[in-house]
Simulated assay, not measured.
Amino acid sequence: MKKHDFFNLMSAVKESLNSAYLRIRARSKEDPGTAGDQAEEDWAEILRDWLPATYRIVTKGRILFADGSSSPQVDVLVLTPSYPRGLGNEKYVFAGGVVAAFECKLTLRSSDIKRAFLTASAIKRKAPVRLGTLYDELNRPPIFGLLSHSHDLSQGDRDWDRLYKAIQKCAEECPEHPRELLDVVCVADTATISVGKHVLVGKGLSKEEKEELTEIGQESAVAALYVVQDEMKWNSERDHSGAILAGLIYELTHRMAFVDPTIRPWADHLSGLGFYGGIGIPLYCSEDVLSDSVRRHLKDEGASAEAWSKWSPSLP
């Protein structure tokens, strides 16, 4: 099948970002502050160009919570379409208007990954508790991501090996609940790695899901899975160029659409343009991370197969 133009466009964006990386890195030692600012602007521009147009993208802000406290400075913020213009130039951004927040790096290091996980958890813990559906209980706003032009982790047989292992290690150590996990990591020359949750609780489980529970020796579980989207030519008959940034835009749009139904037709369209995601290793936790009422619902009625349902067994 011919590769869709969306992936060709993302491939061109990736090449432009790589050229910027080489140019900025050459000057980073003499002026690291400016290099960092340029890295943020590069990513902000990509999000402005490729996320739904009604969402405003700003740089360098702190998220202001309802209790008066604030987050550490965040490099790039995505604001709701309804966020008041009168607040648009303030560097303290009200939490209720923040859809997504990103740390941006020129060259990613392992310490940056752990810091991003800790920041994501701290910010998500400040969000109001949401109960009543699988989606609400396994997700807390804002979407939180880590974006980088490149990384300095040692390479394995696959470019993303060490990167994935560092993410997996932090996912095991940092959050107290799967809703606090870092949502997405994108290293433009390596891979997009995003988390999804899968619920193995209640009636209606498939044969494969029951076998999975048998393998881990549990009667039920909630799994969080970081999945890799890369451009390795494991299939010589397919051109995977553009897949990394295409995967990032798809993942962010899909997550945003769970809250904003007006962009679901666009998210559905993106989902049909190509293949997103790949392999990963599940992290399992007890069904106790869900409320009693949600667990009763799953055991009485099961999950939902409807598109965009907050009771879907597979969620962002």
Results as ranks from 00 to 15, higher is better:
261 P>C: 03
89 N>Y: 11
7 F>C: 04
119 T>D: 13
136 D>M: 07
152 D>V: 03
11 S>C: 11
256 M>K: 05
301 E>Q: 12
300 D>E: 15
43 W>E: 03
32 P>C: 05
306 E>C: 06
247 G>P: 04
296 R>E: 15
154 S>I: 09
248 L>V: 04
40 E>V: 08
113 I>C: 01
207 K>E: 15
295 R>H: 07
98 V>F: 08
169 K>H: 05
226 Y>E: 05
64 L>F: 04
196 G>C: 07
42 D>P: 00
180 E>N: 09
140 R>D: 10
94 F>W: 05
35 A>N: 01
167 I>Q: 06
177 H>D: 14
263 I>C: 07
49 D>P: 00
50 W>P: 00
240 H>F: 15
271 S>L: 11
206 S>W: 11
219 E>W: 02
80 T>G: 03
239 D>W: 06
63 I>H: 04
28 S>K: 00
2 K>Y: 10
230 D>N: 14
230 D>Q: 04
247 G>C: 10
42 D>T: 02
74 V>A: 05
146 L>G: 02
155 Q>F: 06
122 A>D: 15
228 V>I: 14
276 Y>Q: 05
271 S>R: 13
157 D>T: 15
160 W>R: 06
271 S>E: 15
226 Y>K: 00
97 G>R: 01
229 Q>E: 15
131 L>H: 06
51 L>Q: 14
301 E>T: 08
301 E>D: 12
187 V>E: 07
238 R>C: 05
49 D>H: 05
27 R>N: 13
98 V>Q: 08
97 G>T: 01
237 E>C: 09
21 Y>K: 09
133 T>Q: 13
21 Y>M: 07
104 C>N: 12
105 K>V: 01
146 L>K: 04
26 A>Q: 11
249 I>D: 06
230 D>H: 05
307 A>H: 08
178 P>H: 06
178 P>D: 07
250 Y>F: 15
222 V>A: 09
100 A>V: 02
169 K>E: 13
243 A>Q: 13
146 L>V: 06
260 D>C: 03
162 R>I: 01
50 W>H: 13
111 S>T: 12
252 L>Q: 05
104 C>K: 01
272 G>M: 11
224 A>S: 15
278 G>W: 11
13 V>P: 00
61 G>T: 02
297 H>M: 11
75 D>P: 00
17 L>I: 09
18 N>L: 12
225 L>P: 01
199 V>I: 09
68 G>Q: 12
31 D>M: 01
78 V>D: 10
82 S>R: 11
166 A>T: 08
188 A>I: 08
16 S>D: 14
305 A>G: 13
85 R>N: 11
74 V>C: 09
92 Y>E: 15
232 M>H: 13
98 V>Y: 06
239 D>E: 12
128 P>V: 04
141 P>I: 03
2 K>E: 15
4 H>P: 00
153 L>Y: 11
282 P>K: 06
76 V>P: 01
258 F>G: 01
52 P>S: 04
86 G>W: 10
141 P>C: 03
235 N>F: 12
281 I>M: 08
44 A>I: 02
233 K>C: 12
150 S>H: 10
313 P>D: 08
220 S>P: 02
